[in-house]
Write a protein that binds this DNA or RNA. Structure first.
Length: 114
DNA sequence: CGATTGACGTACG
DNA sequence: TCGTACGCCAATC
């Protein structure tokens, strides 16, 4: 199957608790900077993932919880994010820029051996 | 098989 | 500065 989804899930699961990333960042981490839309699509297919994917840590480049509608009406992204210590205001991650976790950069640092 | 969509992002008007 | 249009690649209808 499309490893693309698995790659996305892997990156998303690599996001530390209390941190968030963006679709574009994940896409770029996979080598498809312009393919941000596919990341969302892949996360949409995250339900077919064997393990639960913390897609709630993935937001758009503005830090807005755009995928909240896809999560469910009850247990939404904001609640989960707050569960991890991430403050959410008006459907947007507070101090998102500080909580932003760029997989393309962070993972690259680990590859270098810190 | 062909056209449209998609949890986005960038470029242009 | 704000709004609209288009492009990404793959999946779905």
């Amino acid at each position: 199957m499309a490893r693309f989804e698995e790659e996305v899930w892997a990156v998303v699961r690599a996001v530390p608790v209390g941190r968030v990333t963006t679709y574009g960042a994940v896409a770029r981490a996979l080598g498809m900077e312009g393919a941000s839309r596919r990341v969302g699509w892949a996360l949409n297919a995250c339900n077919r993932a064997a393990e639960p994917v913390p897609a709630h840590r993935v937001v758009n480049r503005l830090g807005m919880l755009t995928g909240q509608a896809h999560f469910g009406t009850g247990w939404s992204m904001e609640d989960r994010l707050e569960q991890e210590g991430i403050r959410v205001k008006a459907g947007r991650v507070v101090e998102f820029e500080e909580l932003f976790w760029d997989a393309a950069v962070e993972l690259a640092h680990e590859a270098e051996g810190t």
